[in-house]
Simulated scan of single mutants.
Amino acid sequence: MEFFNDLARPEEPAAERAVAGPPTGNAEQRYLPRRDWDGMRHDDWADTALIEARLAGGAPPGGDTGWSGATPLHLTAEQGAADGISALLARGVEVDARDDDGHTPLWNAVQSMDEAAIRALIDAGADVWTPQEAPWSPGRLLLGTPLAPLVSSLPGAEELPAEDAAAQRAADALIAAFGDEPLWTDGLGICFVRDLTEDEVIRRLGADPARCPRTGGDDAPFDAEDYEEALRHVGVHGVEGAPGGCVITQEGYLPSDEALLSAISTGTTAYGVYFNPKGGTFGSLARDGEVVESDEIGLWPHESDPAAFWTFRFWQRKQDFPYGADIFAYACAEAGLVIEDGREAADHYAPRRWVELPPELC
């Protein structure tokens, strides 16, 4: 869980304001001591000086923060603020306190992948191996990351099963295929389809391949500023791999739409994703002409979610890959593609073969 609580604080009686200290809105007053944690914004928990000022004013080290049962240690760990963690631990806070989701501060530190914060909590005796989202413990999450040495030699250390380790390597390779430069995702619709050639995809979309030459986005046969017209067109681009296939892209939702997925997936598998600019990322899986699964994806997973949500690192708050690369990689895997270079595939404005969709697919 990520904690956000920017709601305005109710007005306090004057006597209570005098004890609690002035509000934190003005920069000059932020660091005056207070006896509570009210008014702390999300990123304030990375500010060790602010945390120490609150503690000096009498704010309870393990007290209520108003953030879904999280203690100050949870929120400081989420920010990866090792000095703030040390300040709270020095006040004797419970290192393995659970929030409303049953997660400990170490779980939050692991999700933020901050080595110093993780070390501080482990050195304070944090529980590394008890599952918090079965079978996932903080230590098990770390075993599939470059920070595995922090836990691999600890008492009770586990090893990832060979099958799980192989799945993690494959997922990381797919994520890496989308490079390390920023990716455009806002409003993007993209579909990965296994095995099919560009010509076959174009035919399944109801067009003649001979009438669909490859052109750049600036030379596309429609006015990109006209949303309704643009929505009637998609770009098709082949991808090499073992196996490879094609991607279909659009500045719109249709590559994840049931009608389009059903039309192109006969005899194969396709996975469509829509990065809704109004919020949320939505994916649909189609097999042999039928959509068999649709869900919001990319959210921090829970115990009931597919194992692939964990393998493709939806649980990480801080990532060393571009935003969206994990979702592109997940969509590739769901479609059955194994590609080595996904940059051009994911770039809707790179050269494409543009297809005008028939009315039944719009």
Rank of each mutant, 00 (worst) to 15 (best):
E251K: 07
G252P: 03
G252V: 05
Y253F: 11
L254T: 08
L254W: 08
L254I: 11
P255S: 05
P255G: 04
P255W: 08
P255Y: 04
S256R: 13
S256D: 03
D257I: 00
D257P: 01
D257M: 07
D257Y: 10
D257N: 14
D257R: 07
D257F: 12
D257S: 14
E258A: 13
E258N: 06
E258C: 01
E258S: 09
A259R: 14
A259P: 01
A259K: 13
A259C: 03
L260D: 05
L260V: 13
L260K: 04
L261V: 00
L261D: 01
S262N: 11
S262A: 15
S262E: 15
A263Q: 08
A263H: 09
A263I: 10
I264F: 11
I264H: 05
I264A: 07
I264C: 05
T266R: 14
G267L: 12
G267K: 10
T268F: 09
T268E: 10
T268R: 09
T269F: 01
T269I: 11
A270N: 07
A270M: 08
A270L: 07
Y271A: 07
V273W: 04
V273E: 09
V273S: 04
Y274I: 06
Y274M: 06
F275D: 09
F275E: 08
F275P: 06
F275Y: 15
F275V: 08
N276L: 11
N276C: 15
P277W: 14
K278V: 09
K278Q: 15
K278Y: 13
G279D: 10
G279A: 11
G280F: 09
G280E: 10
T281Y: 04
T281M: 10
T281N: 14
F282Q: 01
F282C: 02
F282N: 00
G283M: 03
G283T: 03
S284C: 07
L285E: 02
L285C: 02
L285M: 06
L285T: 05
A286N: 04
A286S: 08
A286K: 02
A286M: 06
R287E: 14
R287V: 15
R287N: 05
D288A: 10
D288T: 10
D288Y: 11
D288K: 12
G289R: 13
G289A: 14
E290L: 15
E290P: 03
V292Q: 02
V292N: 00
V292F: 01
E293S: 14
E293P: 01
S294C: 00
S294L: 00
E296C: 07
E296P: 03
E296V: 09
G298V: 06
G298Q: 06
L299E: 13
L299T: 05
W300D: 10
W300E: 14
W300V: 15
P301S: 03
P301F: 03
P301C: 04
P301Q: 05
H302V: 08
H302I: 09
E303I: 00
E303A: 14
E303L: 01
S304C: 08
S304R: 13
S304K: 13
S304M: 10
S304V: 12
